[in-house]
Design a protein around this nucleic acid. Sequence first.
RNA 1: GACCCCAUCGUCUAGUGGUUAGGACACCGCCCUCUCAAGGCGGGAACGGGGGUUCAAGUCCCCCUGGGGUCGCCA
Length: 463
Amino acid sequence: MVVTRFAPSPTGYLHIGGLRTALYSYLWAKRNNGKFLFRIEDTDLARNSKEAAEAIVEAFKWVGLAHEGEIVYQSERFDLYKSYVQKLLAEGKAYKCYMSKEELDALREGQMARKERPRYDGRYRDFTGTPPAGVEPVIRIKAPTSGVISFVDGVKGEVSFNASDMLDDFIIARSDGTPTYNFVVVIDDALMGVNEVIRGDDHLSNTPKQIILYQALGFDVPKFYHVPMILNPEGKKLSKRDGAVDVMEYKREGYLPEALLNFLIRLGWSHGDQEIFSFDEMKEWFDPNNINKSASAYNQEKLVWLNAHYIKQASYERLIEELRFFDVDLSLHVKKELLIDALKDRAKTLVEFTHLAKQILEAPMCYDEKAVEKFLNDDAVIILEHYLEALKNEKMVQEASEFETFTKAFLEERGLKLKDLAQAIRLAMVGSSVSPSIFEVLEIIGYENVIERIQKLISFKRS
RNA sequence: GACCCCAUCGUCUAGUGGUUAGGACACCGCCCUCUCAAGGCGGGAACGGGGGUUCAAGUCCCCCUGGGGUCGCCA
């Protein structure tokens, strides 16, 4: 059975790159009827926060990736890790190192000055004398000093490292007794039964260290997939300066989670020429073995296009529900379906959707200057006034088709074209020269409000 | 600097020795049209460079260049 996991460290929000590896892990587990587990890597008590862990879980909920079982918190498993440290110590596979931080820093500085790769020199590897007083030791693993460590990565293919220029006796437990990252990752993955690890390729060079640990601990080494990083549009590492990296920021900006997921799955992976993937299709076809080897640049336009696509596809109920987050409640509006139909081809995000909706729902507070100048000259005001009179005399016009019939008859009597009046009406309705079809807008706004808005524009122009 | 990884249109990608190098986003043009979108049709646009191997190289090998990652008592 395939068991995968997502294991973020709670130092902030859920990063977009993290979400992508989580998605891949989730999909691969689902495709194989396996399990997708969730673990919070909070061994560094000083840097982690409860709030950050909660924020990540919340983001996970938003995108709809469900994990199996309880969330594992590493901070609650220190005793477990300690027992494995003791085991390695007892077996002579790890040892106490009494080197102080100052000594270590001095060693590194010297190495850097000589342009060498900074590394521990192994001075306590075979130490048997009496330890220096007043130094709490760290625990180091005895790593091989020669040979080659290689593994077959599901994405990169065969990768190998020379132990001699890669490894040193790295620390598995700090002087305060807490275990370090590489150590706990290995123990937890092994104990949780994780056998396929999909993660960012920034972990590629940690992998030989972890393999050493798997072997020292007597665990099976899992299959690794190192997925390339997401770059910014300039091809550099994605950072906060490049816009949204926090997943929840996408929610605030009006993106649908399925658009985000669809965007992420196509960043580095493909299924022929297909662009749009339903969640079921993702689960059916995703395979980490054909993830692209090269890094891909974040491309906002594609996300926007995908989002527009999913907005077009969304049901009335869904859209009404999503819009609540932006303080727009359409549920009681009599023309809500017409409104939604009119806007969903035009809004690229839900934020845009709310702006467009409000523009129609609320009478304009001001008018676009250029539009007034261009479409509301003296002749146009007169036509509009006549139109207003005619409309008042008509008593009641309701549907878009009725507004259209009425308007066209009005124009024909005067030998005018729709062009001569349409923009003036639009200006009266929404305050600008851009809107959905005016007849639909008129129906949505309703006879009485239409009259009011036309009157308002005329008096604005006349004053 | 050392080590590791990578390299097809501007971007995401298809391509696994023989292709007019395909699709999508973006861009441009046309159609539709009450504006703006949406939609339809069409267009420009790529194999980083140099050596090999081969009848044949975007595809295999080497070098260069360029990019990315990692080198913590962070994860």
